[in-house]
Design a protein around this nucleic acid. Sequence first.
DNA 1: TGCCGATACTTGATATTTGAAACAACTCGC
DNA 2: GCGAGTTGTTTCAAATATCAAGTATCGGCA
Lengths: 161, 161
Amino acid sequence: MTTTSRPRNASDATEHDALRLWLRLFTCSTIIAQHVGSALKREFGSSLPRFDLLSQLYRAPDGLRMGELSERTLATGGNVTWLVRALESEGFVTRRVASSDRRAAIVRLTPSGRRHFAAMARAHERWIIALFSSLTTTERRTLHELLGTVKQRFRLPRTTE
Amino acid sequence: MTTTSRPRNASDATEHDALRLWLRLFTCSTIIAQHVGSALKREFGSSLPRFDLLSQLYRAPDGLRMGELSERTLATGGNVTWLVRALESEGFVTRRVASSDRRAAIVRLTPSGRRHFAAMARAHERWIIALFSSLTTTERRTLHELLGTVKQRFRLPRTTE
DNA sequence: TGCCGATACTTGATATTTGAAACAACTCGC
DNA sequence: GCGAGTTGTTTCAAATATCAAGTATCGGCA
């Protein structure tokens, strides 16, 4: 069986289009994530999930609940519990019971955590800029918008299938 | 906090541009991966890494070495060993020592593995097409090309930093 | 030959992630 | 106030991933 040339129809192209696109999206994301992740580990003894979690807290001066962290970082609940415990033991975050709801825990950055994150963020920024430097500003914007459309798809109610 | 207008310089825009882009790229990829991964598990008792590995073998009728699998799937060596062992025990792949190099193992899809993958691929294709259906053909092509440029960056020799 | 530095892969210890079940604290209608 | 269902979080075991170190083989060369 050499060079299987099976018949193609019009939709075939679309299908392969979408598949190739997904493959490439996944590859790009994974490569960059590995790149950044290993750099974070090497230079800061950290990781991408930790960085991601800290960055959410950095933007939320009033702290966030575990559930909010879970949503925003795309990590599962159990994972957030685990990450926060580790970061807490290193003194980067604190937890306190919410006054309004005693089930909920509010997580905040400590001053030390804030400094730690700021340092990582600076380095992170440099790496990312370098990685995307092969695109023009316009291209970056286009890419951003197209991905926005894709992402949109997930906010909508379940598709009919 | 309403429209905090802090001083900006020219590079500021670029930086945030790149960061936001990376964040969105990562988010899109992760969401789709979770979506597809859980569907693969639910309907086929499989996972994205397994699917990925099988798809590489599907395209390589002559089989692939462990090392090649590792490169192509972006998984670490140890992980590939682990995955292949699992798939082998389920009868989806076989391993044999390469005749040319007794260190190397050549992995191939079994007929059963081929059928298994084909079934998953059909479903996978449907999901992906649905997920990207909010883009026009042209947009998909543009996205694909832009990501290609980004990916390119990693084939080049180390950047000066 | 016989040794040396690469290579291809596996192993084992450890780290991380997931998913489902378990808990405790909420809310609401009564 | 009292259950019944909800919600926010943790726990625990199983699945998966990583890293470093180990084993076997190779290719070449003195």
